[in-house]
Computed example of a mutant assay.
Amino acid sequence: MDTIEIQRVVEIEDDNWWYRERREIVARELRRTGATGRAVDIGAAGGGNTRVLLDHGWKATAVDNTEAAVDLCLSQGLDACYADARFLPLPSAEFDLALALNVLEHIEDDAAAAAEIARVLRPGGAVLVSVPCDMRLWSTHDVALGRVRRYTRASLAETLTDAGLVVDRIWSWNVLVRPFVRLRRHRIAHCEDMAHLHPALNESLSLLASLERRLPLKSWPGVSLFARAYQPAE
């Protein structure tokens, strides 16, 4: 993610439905985890998810491969460092939790990044991953965001298990908006997803996301995939 894109994220992430809902998913997973400990937020960008970790009692470190993102995190008082996800300057078996939200799809060698996540997790430590799914949704939006792939459930599971992690769950996200997304991205020749949404549209999408939480749709095709995996206990 380049400096301009990070600035856009920071401008919209407090109010934008997509970022709000993703933070809610992170918060829900943290509540399920119960205990707190040390966490690393890989690909932290503006630090929104790092703040969620802190709000839930975790000691969190933000990591990003863009200096502007690291500077922004530091300016907010967050612990942050500059690093490539494939070469984390972090000790082995030190973290109880890792976040890698919309990170792996930007990395050609995603296997190396997954291996680094496994390396820094202590035995029993968990990772929460999100990625875009289904190459049938590939569009100029993906190109504009610097993605190199979209995943299937099988390819995401393989990436994590090949790194030595045990996949606990994989589920779909943004199932209800998939038809709209597929139509919009194949009709529009440039990326508009990061633009400010009209408040009415933003609220409508937020309501759809809230409805999706209450429906048994996690196995249906969506726009994104979430996965939770863990480092086997010794």
Rank of each mutant, 00 (worst) to 15 (best):
Tyr19Cys: 08
Glu5Lys: 13
Leu197Cys: 03
Ala114Asn: 08
His190Arg: 10
Ala229Leu: 09
Glu67Pro: 03
Asn174Ile: 05
Arg213His: 10
Ile170His: 00
Ala144Cys: 07
Ala200Ser: 13
Ile6Ser: 07
Leu74Phe: 04
Ala209Pro: 01
Ala115Lys: 08
Arg182Ser: 13
Ala85Gly: 11
Ser92Ala: 15
Thr161Cys: 08
Arg169His: 05
Glu158Ser: 14
Leu208Asp: 02
Ala227Phe: 05
Val129His: 05
Asn102Val: 04
Ser206Glu: 13
Asp142His: 03
Ile188Thr: 15
Ala35Leu: 12
Asp84Trp: 06
Val167Cys: 00
Glu116Gly: 05
Gly37Tyr: 04
Arg187Tyr: 08
Ile6Trp: 11
Cys81Lys: 15
Ala209Asp: 04
Glu105Met: 03
Asn174Trp: 01
Leu78Cys: 04
Ala114Arg: 10
Asp162Tyr: 05
Gly164Phe: 13
Val129Leu: 11
Val26Cys: 01
Arg119Phe: 00
Asn102Gln: 10
Cys133Glu: 15
Val40Phe: 09
Leu97Met: 02
Ile107His: 13
Ser224Phe: 14
Ala35Gly: 06
Arg23Pro: 01
Arg136Leu: 09
Arg20Thr: 02
Asp15Cys: 05
Ala229Val: 15
Thr159Arg: 14
Val175Gly: 01
Ser172Ile: 04
Leu54Lys: 09
His141Gly: 07
Ile25Thr: 10
Ala154Pro: 02
Met194Arg: 04
Pro89Thr: 01
Leu205Pro: 10
Ser204Met: 14
Pro232His: 13
Arg213Tyr: 05
Gly164Ile: 14
Ala85Pro: 05
Asn174Lys: 11
Trp171Ser: 02
Glu192Asp: 12
Asn102Ala: 08
Arg38Asn: 06
Pro221Ile: 12
Trp58Met: 05
Thr50Tyr: 00
Gly47Phe: 12
Glu108Pro: 14
Asp79Gly: 10
Ala60Met: 15
Gln76Ile: 12
Trp220Ala: 03
Ala44Asp: 01
Asn65His: 06
Ala68Pro: 04
Trp171Asn: 04
Asp41Gln: 07
Asp84Gly: 10
Met194Ser: 13
Pro216Thr: 01
Pro132Val: 01
Leu215Ser: 04
Asn174Asp: 10
Ala233Val: 11
